[in-house]
Design a protein around this nucleic acid. Sequence first.
DNA 1: GGGTATTGTTTGGTAGCCAAACTATACTAA
DNA 2: TTAGTATAGTTTGGCTACCAAACAATACCC
Lengths: 177, 177
Amino acid sequence: MPASKTQKPAAPTAGARASKPPAAKPAELDFDLLPDLIGYQLRLTQLAIFGDFGSSLADQSISPGRFGVLVLIGANPGMTQSRLALATQLDRSTMVAVIDQLETRKLVERRAAPNDRRSNALWLTEDGKKLLRAMKRRVRSHEKHIAAALGDEDTARLIAMLARIREHLRPKRSDQA
Amino acid sequence: MPASKTQKPAAPTAGARASKPPAAKPAELDFDLLPDLIGYQLRLTQLAIFGDFGSSLADQSISPGRFGVLVLIGANPGMTQSRLALATQLDRSTMVAVIDQLETRKLVERRAAPNDRRSNALWLTEDGKKLLRAMKRRVRSHEKHIAAALGDEDTARLIAMLARIREHLRPKRSDQA
DNA sequence: GGGTATTGTTTGGTAGCCAAACTATACTAA
DNA sequence: TTAGTATAGTTTGGCTACCAAACAATACCC
């Protein structure tokens, strides 16, 4: 932004005030090929859903990702961090901070793994279980709200389509849903 | 990672969900309700697509988001940063860095806006146009590859479904595709 | 035993994003 | 004209989320 002010302000002094043409309306934006891109549509939709999801869980300040971690630990008590990292497609080093955070909040505990002293066995605390139950309820109701836009049948079809895309994209991969 | 299938309801036989055998083996992971969540599925699919997309554009080191910005500027030459921020759902302050980056790489230019000395009019440089053309080709072919997993008809249906979800979620909003 | 693989961790980096405060400019109305 | 207010871009500061390399402890295999 030029700080100089050497230029005269468009002299409104002259009475030439007659023609104020269409005033150059912003005009419609052209999104070109974007709306046809599946990745773009996915991003938009995910933004919308996560925004909604987030606001619905905001008071717990648990992000969708953290919720997923809690679910996995809840459903697979005693699992290790590495397995969890694999399942969530996060790096092991990332998972350290995630568990640190959840442990600080007293939602998750690291315990000794029975067979391997390198591993941490992850368990929900009572608080964690309680919070998870409450969040699951909300998530399910939130999900119902979304599914209402499509109907059960189309919702199932949508999920199947997404799975199909993934399978087609990455020939082989496992330990992930 | 021991692997298996793309995971399934996991619950070994319906209903039974109490016993916890002292699994000596990694055992199957239970993803619980996650696979039924649209948001979760979207995230997985987006990860897969963007990963693929990214690797296909890696040599240009242009992220999907940056690509979208280039497309918008290309299709709406002279548009301002604010409009662009609105269209991409980014903050205006975020857009500054984005444009800085693209300008440094000589793909985009900030020019004086004709009617408003506060605004920057954004234009692609020749390099920008060239790169955009090349990337569009790749993106389209990439898109074809994805669509091949579904077929044209289902692809269109998928996109329509996603749009429906968004509309249902956020009552109304404009300036976005 | 020795070699190698794996687990969790530390460290250091990146991308991407938002919010508040600020400057320059534009618009509006007294 | 002038004052008030709104807007465009920017700066600053922060935050989340992520990866990659290196490392110690432990496990596994021969």
